[in-house]
């Protein structure tokens, strides 16, 4: 706004320094979220003696870790300008397919690979309908959401399948720990760190930002925008597949009704974390903070014995507040 106009802008690096970095940090969405989460932690530490215990921390982390994998896929898709309502049912479908294959005598690892492949194919099909046929992401994924759920129910007769014979080394992904850290959290951290780096730093993912920011300008920069959208759509479903397998290992069962309403939680987390529904902006780190915030809120409300019905109302209000604040900040900047 009141930045000094210089022809080269070179003197900036010289005078910048710590103050500048601090100012930039404060302006970032992520900083605000970290502060809110910290404030919640402090408040809850006083409100409930159980909150700051290792067991509670671990339970909270487990709760958002697997969903966090899906949030990563959704965030990338949102940045490219798309959206996916089918994440919950595709995650459940991965569980159901892997579970059924395993019960039919197929090695659990192979079964998992096949389930993830099917999810990838579903994503590719959605990408096809969006980029080649020219339909909107919303409609295509809405249809797939219903179809995938139907397949889950069809395959299981609507009942959860117990997978009591899963080998321990497979259950380890969902239930084991490395030292004191649950494997689920290790996987989550790896996925987040890898994709956060890819998204921030690689040419491949920069094209996702260009495409989402202004698809026409991206095309006029020689970027194959349809390919980009196809790939982000596919990737989101693949990550749903991965999440489904982790859930299966964790629960030791395949649940056809798992993940109903997950899409709302996941989209809310990404948007609270700074992803724009019109594409072009968002970060993995921010989206994960959004996930953590929602998760801490739910867990806090549960500890405080607040009715589950209130939880949805509060979650929705947080989403609305975050988006409203963002809207005003953007307007002032523009």
């Amino acid at each position: 706004m009141s930045t000094v106009t210089t022809p080269s802008g070179k003197d900036r690096g010289a005078s910048g320094g710590i103050l500048d970095t601090l100012r930039r940090l404060l302006r970032m969405r992520e900083t605000g979220l970290v502060l809110i989460i910290l404030a919640l932690f402090i408040a809850m530490a006083f409100a409930s003696p159980y909150f700051l215990t290792w067991n509670n921390m671990r339970a909270m982390a487990m709760a958002f870790a697997v969903e966090g994998v899906v949030v990563v896929g959704m965030t990338i898709l949102l940045i490219s300008g798309g959206i996916d309502l089918s994440v919950g049912s595709v995650t459940a479908l991965a569980m159901v397919i892997a579970g059924l294959l395993f019960l039919n005598g197929i090695d659990p690892w192979v079964a998992s690979g096949m389930a993830i492949a099917v999810c990838t194919a579903i994503g590719a099909a959605m990408g096809f309908f969006v980029t080649r046929v020219g339909l909107h992401h919303f409609i295509v994924s809405l249809a797939v959401m219903v179809i995938a759920r139907g397949l889950c129910l069809l395959g299981t007769g609507g009942r959860p399948i117990g997978l009591y014979t899963l080998p321990p080394e497979f259950k380890f992904i969902g239930q084991g720990s490395i030292g004191v850290i649950p494997v689920v959290i290790v996987i989550f951290v790896v996925v987040v760190v890898v994709f956060d780096f890819l998204l921030r730093r690689t040419t491949m993912f920069r094209k996702v930002f260009y495409t989402g920011s202004n698809e026409k300008a991206a095309a006029y920069s020689g970027i194959r925008t349809k390919k980009v959208v196809f790939l982000t759509t596919t990737l989101c479903s693949t990550l749903c597949g991965v999440a489904g397998i982790i859930y299966m290992a964790r629960f030791g069962s395949a649940q056809p009704t798992f993940g109903i309403g997950m899409e709302l939680n996941v989209i809310a987390a990404a948007v609270i974390g700074g992803a724009s529904l019109s594409g072009g902006s968002g970060t993995i780190f921010g989206a994960i903070l959004g996930t953590i915030l929602l998760s801490v809120v739910s867990s806090s409300l549960a500890l405080l014995d607040v009715s589950v019905y209130w939880q949805d109302i509060i979650r929705g209000s947080i989403l609305l507040t975050a988006v409203t604040i963002d809207h005003y900040l953007n307007k002032r900047r523009g």
Binding site: R206, F209, Y210, S213, N214, K216, A217, A218, A219, Y220, S221, I223, G280, S281, G334
Partner: peptide
């Protein structure tokens, strides 16, 4: 279709 208005100068130049 020429520029990414909400993105930075540097990111536009390198597109």
């Amino acid at each position: 279709d020429g520029l990414f208005l909400d993105m930075s100068i540097a990111v536009n130049v390198s597109a």
